[in-house]
Structures are given as structure tokens and as C-alpha cells.
Design a protein around this nucleic acid. Structure first.
Lengths: 345, 345
DNA sequence: CTTAGCACTCTCTTGTCGGGAGTGCTAAAT
DNA sequence: ATTTAGCACTCCCGACAAGAGAGTGCTAAG
């Protein structure tokens, strides 16, 4: 496995994978022979194929079908053989434009970029924004939301907006709120929400908090609003693109399973979570991905940064037979685009 | 058409429709005869069926198949024959709970309710919130969003939150913003956004605005932020439920078309728009619905109110063969639930 | 007016068959 | 010692036929 595969076998294997990616059909020896300009006869190719099968890289759906790359085969292909396609200028342009023109609300931008990515790759695209806690505050504001509710709006440096609801406190006047706002903003700028909470709790223990009624009020409200951490967000765009793949069309049951999975935030989370920790792009082929019910799909995902820390990841979901040489650069580019975009804000 | 159908024919027709709704298969004369306790023989039923076919209510997929209700048939069924099922206590309970427990951000609540509706009906559920302009302000706040951008956050009485971005104005200090906030809030409470804009423009023409620099600033910023109207929002929940319907599973092309349509906000808009104007529940059967590419699906939708004016609508999308007797009360109940919920806020 | 009877139509399933694609093996060619 | 031509073999797939099943329309009797 590790060492194996002389040059010729490698060549043949590459052709097989690429043909299979393009056609979704088992590849026969004739096809490959032709593709190599008859340098080798079908019979020879067959011998090589038999070797590749023994090595676990190829499989036969049935005796007289062509060969299909196994998951291990794809793994090997990606690790050793992949020739990245460089992106078209027009593609990178479109992506950058989408990243720039969206307004501040970060979710809008991310959604738009994700959608475009989905279209370019003809796969379903997915974004996970999973570390709201690492986001740094730019400003916050308490607003009256109903007779007995106050809404805390927090604008983060990256452009994400978070809302927290505070129940009770019906007696605060608009003027009180303004003062509290000013006070909290003074504390908040440049901190993460959990850090702000810690700071608030600290302040609450200070002497002076006990004597200034409004300040005390502000602090307890802040503490309450920040008690639980934000859960992170998930966007799925371009679901319909999975219908472009013949393997999904054929099997409606599979399709159902996948679409159901898209409705479960937690599933998507598990799917992309890994990509957040590793800086590099992550390719999970079939059973490598962490979600049992999606053992027959692949995920190509990359984390994106906000300043120094990775805060989320963006990825594509599709059949194991994906055009990795194209999709990997695409996702990588998109992720880095998001990173620089968030960096500038 | 209008007058037609004696009692017996009606009875038979109802049975046919209901059987077809339950099974998605053409219904034969035997089946109906049995269902009626052999009161009539299959032969008699066949005669009646022939009449119903002539009247345009039934059709035969092919010579020796059973009968299937036509779209006109469904229309008649809904208009004259429908026996509404009353909802289960557990269902109404679940819906009310979902409506209550969501926090203020109205989109969260609406989304949750919509999802539940989708599950209860086993159809895809769709919400359109289309009249942001009719929403009445509760409070608003300007927040620093980036070095040269300001975010206007508006909390409406119903709990919807709107964001508008104002470009430029890098030199405003937090203190300035606070003052502007206070000033604008004074103007804003209880108005719709367009009304507020009108008011602002009016103020700008007043004498005093010319002399108070900050006030002038506040007004022009407000005017700019409110220059364009909010486009309204669309949520689709429970897409996977359309895979529960055999008629969609069989025809992948159709499925693709429908899923694609779900990705187009504007399509969904057109689909539910009508329901907003008419107070009552709207049932669009197949070609009756306003979207050409969805001529083979039905929409059951109802508007929901915010105070006196209808601001959005919620509905279900499914095959023409829907269980209307169940789905109609469900949608109606859900819509009224949303109305009362928004009313209380 | 209802219904039993019957011939007829159409679909759907099952089985059979031949062609096509592709393989593996063997023996000859290089 | 490879490579390759040749060939028998396997399996899929589409076409075709046959039969069962479901349902109809019509006719004639109740």
C-alpha cells in the first residue's frame, strides 16, 4: 500500500480515477488504453488493473464490469496524485466580489459566498460558524424589545451580529438604558463575550458596584444575558445541486437520508467540525467523515480565520466521486477569502 | 358543473377523492363499492364514475386504470365537500408551545413554528414575511459596525429585527452616536419605517435642523438608512418532507424542479403572495398557483396579522393530492397562532 | 334504474434470450 | 520476461412475449 505502485500503474490509476470522476461509470481497460494513445494494449491494462485491485485501490461492481476506485483509492489519489486545477480568473473574481459587496452583517456575506461556491462546484455548500465566543466585540446595545424584555445586540469585529434576550426588567426607562449602554460599551470594546462576562462578574464583586444602583443593574443584566454561550450557526446553500449527481438521483432513499441530514444543524456541525481545528483543508471521503448516516458522501472543508483564531469552516458536500482537483482549490480559495475579509473588518 | 352532482354521485366522488388522497393510486369501482358497504354494485359505481368523468371531475390515466380526481375535481371537493378534521389536542399544544417559547427575535419563532407545521403535515412548509414596512417600531439603535460603517438596528413591535447599514460617517464618536440614538428614538417609537423616513425628511426641512449640527447629522443618516425598503423574508422548512410523497419520488425531474424553486426567494414570494391579501385561507391547486414552473403542486396558505394589517403568510407546499381536510385546519390554526402571538407583543 | 356477465384494454411482473462490454487466462510474439 | 492477441466466460441490460390482475364499457336481464 504505502510504497507500492510503479510509475506505470500510477499513470493508469490516475486515468481511471479521472475517467470515473468525469463519467460516474465503471472504467474498462479499452477506455484507458485508448486514452493513453494505445501505448499499452487493453490486455496489459487489465493486468495492471488486477494488481491495483489486489492493492485495494480498485473494485469491480460485478465480474464483467469495469473498475471503480475504492475509497482507499480515492484517498491515495488525493494524497499522492492530485493535480490541482488552477481556478479560472472569472471564478475567483466572482467569489471576491461576492465577499466584498455584502453588507456588514457577516451572515449575509457568508451565505452569499457559500451559495456562489455551491454553484461553481455544483455541489451543496455548507458553512459552519462555530466559535461565536472567540469573536471580539465592536459595540453593543441594549434595546427595549417588549414590555418586559430587553434585547442585547452585539456587533462583533468580523461583522457578525448576536442577539440575546433578557427577560424581566420592565421598569427601565429609555434613559436608564442609554446610560447602561454607555457604561457597558465602555467595558466591552475589544473583548470576547465570555471575557466580558468574566469582567462583569469581577466588577460585580468590586466595592463601588454595590453603591451605584444603575451600574449594579447594568452588570447583573449583562451577566444574565451572557450566561449561556451562543450555539454557533449553520448555513446550507445549494441543496438542489446534489441532484446534479447521477449517483444520488438513482437512489431516492439515499437522497432522502442526505436531505434529512441537511435539516439537522447538529449533523452539519459534526460534519465540518474537524475542519475548524486543522488549519489545512480537510477531505473526508465516505466513511472517514464523522457522521454515520452519511457514510457514503464526501466532505471537502476548510476553516476560516478571524484574526489569529479559526472561528468557522466552509465546505462542500457531494458524492465520493467528486472532482477533487477542482473542488479542493475552490474551497481553499473561498476559505482564505473569508479569512482575509474578516481580517480587514 | 356548478349545479350538477346529485347526492349519490357526490358521495361516490367524495370516497374517490379520499381514497386517492390516502393511497396516491387510481381508485376502481370495486373499492368504492366495498367502501360503501356494497350499497351499490361496482357496475353502478362505474356508471356514476363515467358521469363524473364527463363532468370533468375525474380522469383515467389509461383505459383500464381506476379513476383519479382532476384538478377541477379537487377544486370542487374543497369548495363543497370538504369535511374539516378537527386538530388533535396534542398538535395544537405543540404548536402553541413552539410559538410561546421562542425568544423575541420573531424570525426564530416563526421558523420554529413553521418547522413544526411542516412535520405535522408532512409537507414542506414555507413562511413569507413580506410587509416589513407595515411593522411598527419599538426602538432603534445606531451602532458602530466598522471603521466607516454604522449599523442601524430596529426592533419592531412584533419582535422582528431589522438591520440597515450606513456607509461612511467614520468620525462619529460613541458619544455622538448615543445622542443621535436618543434623538432618533424620540422620533421613532410607534411609527413604521417609511413613516419615520417621511417624518425625518419633514424635520430636515424645519428651521432648527439647520442650526443643530448633530441633529442635522442624525436626520440625514436616518434618511439614508431608510432610503430603500426592506425586501421581506422567506423561510423554507422541512424540505425533506416532500420526499415523503410518492408522486415526487417517482419523478426525479420534478423533484429537482421543486427543490430549485425552493432556492429562489422570489418564486416563494410569488407563491404565497396572494394569501397575504385575502384574509381567508388560500388553496391553490396545481395550475391555479401563480408560478409557472410549479404548475403541478398545491399551496395551502394563510396570512397572519400584526395588529390590524396582514404582514406575512405561512403555508404548506405539497402535491395536488394533499390531505386538505387536515392540512387546511392546520395552516389556519398556525396562522391565527402567529397573529395572536404578534398581537400580544 | 340496477346489476350480473363478459369481452376487452392496459399495465405490470416474470421469464427468456441475445448482444454488448468487460474480464481472466493462455499461448504466442517480441 | 513482458506484452499482446485470442478466446471462453460472466454479467448486465434491453427487448420481447406471455400471463396475471385490475378495471372498464356495454349489453341484456332483473
Amino acid at each position: 500500500m504505502g510504497a507500492g505502485l510503479d510509475e506505470r500503474a500510477t499513470q493508469v490509476f490516475r486515468y481511471i480515477v479521472e475517467d470515473y470522476i468525469a463519467t460516474a461509470e465503471p472504467v474498462g481497460s479499452r477506455t484507458i488504453s485508448k486514452k493513453m494513445g494505445q501505448a499499452l494494449s487493453p490486455a496489459t491494462i487489465r493486468n495492471i488493473m488486477a494488481d491495483l485491485e489486489e492493492a485495494g485501490f480498485l473494485a469491480q461492481p460485478h465480474t464483467s464490469a469495469g473498475r471503480v476506485p475504492t475509497e482507499a483509492g480515492f484517498r491515495y489519489y488525493i494524497d499522492h496524485l492530485l493535480a490541482r486545477q488552477s481556478l479560472e480568473r472569472s471564478e475567483t473574481d466572482r467569489l471576491s466580489r461576492a465577499a466584498e459587496e455584502g453588507g456588514t452583517p457577516a451572515d449575509e456575506v457568508v451565505r452569499q459566498v457559500s451559495r456562489l461556491l455551491s454553484d461553481l462546484a455544483r455541489q451543496a455548500s455548507v458553512v459552519v460558524f462555530s466559535r461565536p465566543d472567540q469573536q471580539v466585540l465592536r459595540s453593543l446595545s441594549l434595546m427595549r424589545a417588549s414590555v418586559d424584555r430587553i434585547l442585547l445586540v452585539a456587533v462583533m469585529r468580523g461583522g457578525w451580529i448576536q442577539h440575546r434576550l433578557i427577560e424581566g426588567e420592565p421598569d427601565l426607562t429609555p434613559e436608564d438604558l442609554e446610560k447602561i449602554n454607555a457604561f457597558l460599551n465602555g467595558l466591552a470594546e475589544g473583548m470576547t463575550l465570555p471575557a466580558l462576562r468574566a469582567r462583569i462578574l469581577h466588577e460585580l464583586r468590586q466595592e463601588k458596584a454595590r453603591y451605584d444602583r444603575l451600574m449594579h443593574r447594568a452588570l447583573t443584566m449583562g451577566a444574565r444575558a451572557l450566561a449561556d454561550n451562543a450555539p454557533g450557526e449553520v448555513f446550507v446553500e445549494g441543496r438542489a445541486n446534489i441532484l446534479e449527481q447521477p449517483e444520488f438521483l438513482e437512489d431516492v432513499h439515499r437522497l432522502k437520508r442526505i436531505l434529512r441530514a441537511f435539516e439537522e444543524k447538529s449533523v452539519i456541525f459534526r460534519l465540518l467540525d474537524r475542519a475548524i481545528d486543522s488549519q489545512a483543508i480537510q477531505v473526508s471521503i465516505g466513511p472517514e467523515n464523522p457522521v454515520e448516516e452519511l457514510r457514503d458522501i464526501s466532505v471537502v472543508a476548510a476553516g476560516y480565520r478571524q484574526g489569529p483564531s479559526t472561528v468557522g469552516s466552509i465546505g462542500l458536500i457531494g458524492p465520493v466521486r467528486m472532482d477533487y482537483s477542482r473542488v479542493i482549490p475552490l474551497v481553499e480559495y473561498t476559505a482564505s477569502l473569508l479569512s482575509t475579509m474578516f481580517g480587514q473588518r
